[in-house]
Every structure is written in C-alpha cells, then in structure tokens.
Nucleic acid binder design. Structure first.
Lengths: 203, 203
DNA sequence: GTCTATAAAGGGATAGAC
DNA sequence: GTCTATCCCTTTATAGAC
C-alpha cells in the first residue's frame, strides 16, 4: 500500500513547530518529529538535509506565518491614547492566539544568544516592522522619552504577563482572572497612560 | 597519584549552573559537566543518582544562593517614590551581577511548564519573599491598582530589558547605552512614576 | 572518591528497495 | 516520497578496580 498522503515541507514544519516550541532544539529528536507527523524519521531527510535546517525553517515558518499588523492603527485619525489601546489589545490577542509563537521568540532569545544569524533572523522577521511601528507610536506618545526603550517597555510589559502565566498561580496574590487578556490589557494600558500617580497616591 | 582535590557536591553544582543556564537540561551532557569540573563523568554518579537530580539541585542551589533583599527598603522612613527607586535599582543590579540566575529563571519558566513541582520550587525559592515585598510596595504606591498585576509589571518591565539584551543591537533605534543599567533603571522609574503623561504630551 | 571499561539506549544520518 | 535496515556516534548509567 502506497502512502496516501505525501507530506509537504510545510506540513512537516507545522507539526514540528509546537514540538520545538515546547522542548527546544536539543529537546526534540528527528524520530519524535517523524512520529508526530506519522512518517518515518528517514523520510525527513528527503525534505531537509539535516536537523538544524529543519529547525531553522520551522522557526522561519512560525515567524513568517504570523505578523503583528499595527501600521494601519498608526494612521488612523484617533487620539494617540486610543492608538495605544488598540496596540496593546492586539498584542495581547496575539499572545493568546498563538502561544507557540511567543514561546519560540522566548526560546530563541535564550538559545540564539551567541548565534548572530539566529538573532538577526528573529529581529528582521519578527520584530523589525512591528518594533518600528511601536517606536513611531512611542514618539507620538512621549517625545521626551527614548523611543527604543519605550517600545521595548511596552512590548515587554505585555509579553512578561504571558510568559509568567504558568507560574502565576504559585505566586502571592494570584487570582484566576489575572490570566484574562482583557484584565491584562486594561492593566497595562492604565499603567502606561497614568503611571502610578492615579487618584493622588503620590503628592 | 591520588586526586588532590576531591570535589564536593557544591563544587559540582557551581560548575554545572552556568552550563545549564546557557544550554538547558537537554543541551548539556554529563560528560560536559564532568569536563568543566575536571573529573570523569562516572564520578558524577557518586554524588548524584542521575542527571535529573543533578539538574534540580543545581537550579535549587542557584536559586538559594542569591536572594533579592528588598524588605529592609520597605521599612525605611523615606517617600514611597524613593523606595521604588531603590527597588528598581536593586533589581537591575541583580540582573547584571548574576546573568546565570536570570537565565535560569527564564529557562525554568519555559521548560518547567507542565511540571508543577519545578514551578513551585521557582515560585517558593525565588519569587515568594521578593514578590510579597514588591506587592507591599505596590499597595503603598497605588492602592487602586491590582497589587499582583502591578508587582508583575514592575518586575517584568525590568526583566524584559535584560532578557532582550542579546537581540537589542539588531532592533531599530538601538544604541549601546541601552544596555547600561543606570539608563534602564532611570527609564523604568520614570515610566512607572509618570506614565506617558510627562511634559504634557497628552491632554 | 575517582578512575577505566562497558553496557544499553537513543541520537543523527545514509543506503537502497519499492 | 516513503519505507526498512543499518551505521556510527553520543548519551545515560553501572560495575568493579584502585
């Protein structure tokens, strides 16, 4: 019986992405990837010369298939605070929609350290457009602050709440609703817009 | 010739910590650890029953040997903004002083996902005291905001700038001084205290 | 407490049939 | 394009000498 569903490169990469996101490059074997796809490990070598190449292409595909589209928000005729609100909500939705994506980013920042081509890929394919847009907004919002640092703060503030989701329940003061995207985005927006000075806590 | 410097468990763990911080559990072999120490891989099994145990104890040691001491700041007779300043500066110093520590935290949040005992360890040994103190400060600073979310935001805001250090140079608007701890802590403090409203950017 | 030697399993990768 | 079979190396872990 001949195989009924020959697998394309894309099919293979799609199945490999969640595995690499969960366990990293050295935590996943070619045999495991093959098993997840339902094919033999040897067949993977028909599509990719080696594991490293498969991995890099999986990361590329994960990064290319999703895009932070924020630039349209930037050109809307709405107050800049409203733009910030939309930015934050979109980034939050993004984190929820594709947890593998943010895990891979997270992992590449850890594992890619020292490998400049991997970091460059991450920077160019994932961050560049997105980050430029956040920088533009940062300039509109607070021209006196360093735009790069401010953009990083905005993104990091959101990303960290999602990164820490698994451990949150074990931390003091945690409540189930702290994992709710609406709650997180409202918290981030109010912190960014008002800082800690709301309601006259500080004199 | 007898071995001149019998190694203690602690010696072994100290050498293993940076390796695991750099490459993760499955990225480091017992041989590599043994080599770093200057002993034979088989000898490691005299001190630890298996690799998993060695890893867990290395993480425990890394987490136990350093502590965020912030509680004394909390009881100082200074304005709450000054307490925040001290908190942020200390956390920044911490990130700089022991990059392995923050890499391990970072890694455990990724790899410990699904393993409740590992996350519990991280939460209890690393975060509990520290996080409780930040929550107390958060209450002093802005009693109208959720203390847990605010504590997470304060820590995440700082941690993210250090997490992204390796990739920062590839991102738009990056300058060498963005890796300077003084610059980062000043940025974070001003963002937290003033939000984006400084100098009347927003009406 | 450390070593050499080795077992047993799993890893990446290739050859060749279909 | 996928399979079986296999090579060769590395890995974890153990046994036993010193």
């Amino acid at each position: 019986m001949r195989p009924e569903h020959p697998k394309t490169k894309t099919d293979i990469l799609e199945k490999a992405i969640p595995l690499f996101a969960k366990s990293g490059f050295s935590g996943v074997s070619m045999r495991q990837i093959a098993k997840a796809i339902g094919m033999n490990a040897a067949s993977l070598y028909h599509h990719f010369p080696d594991k490293q190449t498969l991995y890099v292409q999986a990361v590329q595909q994960a990064f290319a298939s999703r895009e932070f589209v924020l630039s349209e928000v930037l050109s809307m005729k709405i107050p800049v605070q409203e733009k910030l609100r939309l930015f934050v909500k979109r980034i939050c939705d993004f984190m929820i929609d594709d947890p593998d994506f943010s895990r891979l980013i997270h992992r590449e920042m850890l594992d890619g350290d020292g490998d400049e081509t991997r970091l460059q890929l991450l920077a160019d394919q994932v961050f560049h457009n997105f980050f430029s847009t956040v920088i533009s907004l940062a300039n509109e919002l607070a021209s006196d602050k360093d735009p790069h640092l401010l953009a990083m703060s905005i993104f990091g503030l959101i990303a960290y709440h999602y990164q820490t989701t698994p451990i949150r329940l074990f931390l003091p003061g945690a409540k189930p609703e702290h994992n709710d995207s609406e709650i997180i985005s409202n918290h981030v927006i109010s912190l960014l817009l008002q800082g800690l000075e709301s309601k006259g806590n500080l004199k």
